[in-house]
Design a protein around this nucleic acid. Structure first.
Lengths: 253, 253
DNA sequence: CCATCTTTGTGCACGCGTTCACAAAGACAT
DNA sequence: ATGTCTTTGTGAACGCGTGCACAAAGATGG
């Protein structure tokens, strides 16, 4: 998961495994594309290919929702779109606030995928008084002093944190106190929240570091086996770094 | 995972489980914070709390790297920072290109966490000729015609895709052909890549949908049990939607 | 109405990840 | 040097997720 999930103690909600829930949006996207092309039905094999998963896994995932397929034919695209949307709660309107309108916050506000599926940017909030009133993506930025009032007036239960790391926990606390129970955190910090509040984090830096790990491993293996075309990474200054550092290095203290 | 991981067939690289690799950056961040506060040593219990994980899990994670702790004392912060950095490949320099300099791409280019740990934005690439030469985050945007040359000249092996969904696969193909072997994808599409290429995806829309699922579940449970303070979500127009829709709904065809 | 063929839904086995619980190891005081 | 106390490192059990493989279901053609 490019995304780390919260450390919920395996709360299998309503019998649907967490791993399945995480894949439903993927299926929904593929199905929506099919729907736009007016494809009436789709087999588990085709849909699985479009979503990039195993077909057995997809069938098992759908089996948690109920028996929505027809043997010998496949799944009705429109019907499945509706069922998954309903299961994910996308048939209702979710007002969302974005806190921290810097580069990232502005990018999120402008992001089209927001409005597309039940999500509506109810307000943009920033701590900088100079930002107040300035429109971003057509929505005027409001000052964070009014955070609680904004949350309550709009019935917001989902908050997006795009502030610097230092401000994230304080913002989080205020959001939760005001009634927000789901938080999407872009700040590079571990947020602590009371039980019953969900936090998901998106962390660019962590994703890059995971890629770097695998990249290093690939470069190391390649240098060892010397097979295949040399990658762009395997050039120049790798002389001082062994491919697999097993030496004790410099033990401090 | 905000993060969904690639469907690699459980490639346990060098004996370090994938789940552990995904947590190493988290530990590294907590350790760096300790290091800046000049804390000399830390116990698994303290560090686990800071990283938001179970202490036994943390110890097992570290055990894959080697025996770097001292019983009765804990872990040497500086030493551990170095070991994890080395394991993740952050002791070397990773030039990165960002393709697609829209709102998101610009936000990524400006993101400080990029440069902080071994990553260096080598180039910004966009398909819009009007963008060419315009500086973003102090780096002039280059046209995508020169993509292959840029990759090769800079020895880039990690690419970030921040283009619209429609362009993502084509950009991906060109990146891979030019020698990129790790891709961080922000476009809402499933990318198909040859073996040996890692893809991690960051998908705002998917994260929000997962939150919506849990949010809906919470609202449903609350309406059923009627315990605790009503959340901001449990207001108004939930009359037409049963808390647990088990009725057959409208079966098409 | 029957045979055939396609595709779903799922029982089952396997492997990974998590957590508990404890023995081994070392620091530290006396 | 010896005992005590803290904390690591890990064996073992458990649970979840994945994928195979197949029986059941239904469509389709004759």
């Amino acid at each position: 998961m490019a995304t780390g999930r919260t450390h919920r103690p395996a709360t299998r909600s309503r019998g649907i495994p967490e791993a399945t829930v995480a894949r439903l949006p993927l299926y929904l996207r593929a199905l929506t594309a099919l729907s736009e092309r007016s494809v009436p039905t789709v087999s588990s094999e085709e849909l699985a290919a479009a979503a990039g998963v195993n077909s057995a896994k997809l069938r098992k995932d759908f089996s948690y929702l109920g028996s929505y397929g027809t043997r010998g034919v496949g799944y009705d695209v429109e019907y499945l779109v509706y069922q998954i949307s309903r299961e994910l709660g996308l048939t209702q309107d979710w007002p969302v606030v974005i806190v921290g309108i810097g580069n990232l916050g502005a990018a999120l506000a402008n992001y089209g995928g927001f409005a597309s599926r039940g999500f509506r940017v109810a307000a943009l909030i920033d701590a900088d008084p100079a930002m107040a009133g300035k429109p971003v993506a057509g929505i005027p930025v409001q000052h964070s002093d009014d955070l609680e009032k904004i949350i309550q007036d709009n019935g917001v239960s989902i908050g997006v944190i795009a502030t610097p790391a230092g401000a994230a926990q304080a913002v989080c606390d205020r959001l939760v106190a005001a009634g927000v129970t789901s938080i999407l955190n872009f700040a590079p910090t571990v947020l602590s929240v009371p039980d019953g509040v969900d936090v998901r984090k998106v962390d660019l830096s962590i994703e890059l570091q995971i890629l770097a790990f695998h990249e290093q491993r690939k470069a190391g293996e390649e240098a060892a086996s010397d097979g295949g075309v040399p990658t762009a990474a395997a050039r120049g200054e790798s002389a001082d770094q062994g491919p697999d550092g097993d030496m004790p290095a410099v033990m401090p203290a």
